[in-house]
């Protein structure tokens, strides 16, 4: 035996996962035959390893692959920088705020400025919801941080396809591989984040 007990004890985990060389393994087994405590620790680690390997994980699977391919395609289409995704996420808040500001301004203009000809009344604007994209119309609680909204949508396989409207409504669609009913249920369950959920009627 060339190594001390303390040195060999450090290899216990690798004895358990079977990655020691045959010579190291034989050396360890000889030590364990004389050391009941170490043998008990080996047994406990073996149970821990077996327990960990038996653990079930629900991975992103094909949805994750679809998401990867979508972003790879975007990356290929716009190879400007590796920061594209980060920038998109960071700027989304500003994008939403800007869109909301434009929508509010448009509402103010429509409400207070007199019609000065041009398109006949009843034309020149589109009713909210008419031919708009998205399967769901949703409003979020005003103070909800973007990260919470994002986590909720990613977890429910949803993406924002338009919004916010002047009333703060967003239109959402399910991602490929997602399920509309499941996604709707997830939104309804998130009561602290989502104020209202309705099926869009196009």
């Amino acid at each position: 035996m060339t190594r001390s007990r303390d040195e060999m004890e450090l290899d216990l985990a690798f004895l358990v996962n079977g990655t020691l060389s045959p010579a190291e393994m034989a050396e360890m087994e000889a030590l364990l035959a004389e050391d009941d405590l170490l043998a008990a620790e080996r047994d406990a680690l073996a149970v821990i390893r077996a327990e960990m390997q038996a653990e079930e994980f629900r991975t992103p699977g094909e949805f994750g692959l679809a998401r990867l391919m979508r972003d790879v395609n975007r990356d290929t289409a716009a190879p400007a920088s590796a920061e594209t995704k980060v920038v998109t996420l960071r700027s989304r808040t500003w994008m939403w705020q800007a869109a909301a500001a434009v929508a509010v301004l448009a509402l103010v203009v429509q409400t207070y400025l007199p019609t000065t000809g041009g398109a006949p009344q009843g034309e020149g604007y589109v009713l909210a919801g008419a031919s708009a994209p998205g399967a769901l119309v949703v409003s979020f609680a005003p103070d909800t941080p973007e990260v919470q909204i994002r986590d909720l949508l990613v977890g429910a396989d949803l993406e924002i396809v338009s919004g916010p409207s002047a009333l703060g409504l967003y239109r959402l669609d399910v991602l490929d591989g997602g399920d509309l009913d499941t996604a709707t249920a997830a939104l309804r369950a998130a009561r602290t984040i989502v104020e209202s959920v309705e099926n869009a009627e196009n």
């Binding site: 290899d11 985990a13 690798f14 996962n17 079977g18 990655t19 960990m52």
Partner: peptide, 12 residues
């Protein structure tokens, strides 16, 4: 370290 040793059975 535990995850790599026991989930993946990696060498040291």
């Amino acid at each position: 370290a535990v995850s790599l040793a026991f989930y993946e059975d990696m060498t040291c």
